[in-house]
């Protein structure tokens, strides 16, 4: 099963494509896209629609997962939350299952790991380090996909 994991940060869309199993996950690719500026919300949503569609058309995932930010500030609503509504709608239209995760749901138990394991360090261990932009947001996009394998 091919899973597309998505994590947003201000001005950036990060995504990763995974397959394999929870025990033996495989990172097919990871990508960073710079979004257009936040100064025009309808244009920004249009940008997200175009790019979510392009990513889904290009990689044809079986399932889409994303990280949602809890308790966003007002500005984060536009850049981190509203685009996920667009993503959900696209997935519904394309009949692709879409699953959301927040950081509280990033538990080791779900991945069959010991509670003491740092998931971000585990990403390095399993997938290797993959610079550039191999940071927490990128790993968030991997973890949400990994959780659904």
């Amino acid at each position: 099963m091919k899973i597309l994991g998505i994590a947003l940060q201000k001005g950036q869309l990060r995504y990763s494509l995974l397959d394999g199993t929870k025990i033996k996950p495989n990172l097919i690719l990871k990508e960073k896209l710079n979004t257009i500026a936040l100064d025009n919300v309808p244009e920004l949503m249009d940008w997200f629609e175009t790019n979510f569609l392009d990513i889904i058309e290009k990689h044809k995932p079986d399932k889409v997962c994303y990280k949602i930010t809890l308790g966003p500030k007002k500005e984060q609503l536009f850049s981190l939350i509203m685009p996920l509504g667009v993503l959900n709608l696209i997935c519904k239209k394309k009949r692709i299952t879409v699953v959301d995760y927040n950081k509280l749901q990033f538990t080791q138990k779900k991945l069959g790991l010991d509670k003491s394991v740092d998931l971000y360090k585990k990403c390095d261990e399993i997938f290797g380090t993959n610079p550039p932009y191999w940071d927490i947001t990128q790993k968030d996009s991997i973890i949400v996909g990994w959780l659904e394998l």
Partner: peptide, 9 residues
Amino acid sequence: RQALDKLRY
């Protein structure tokens, strides 16, 4: 496209 989208007006 990414180079263009990155521009901040």
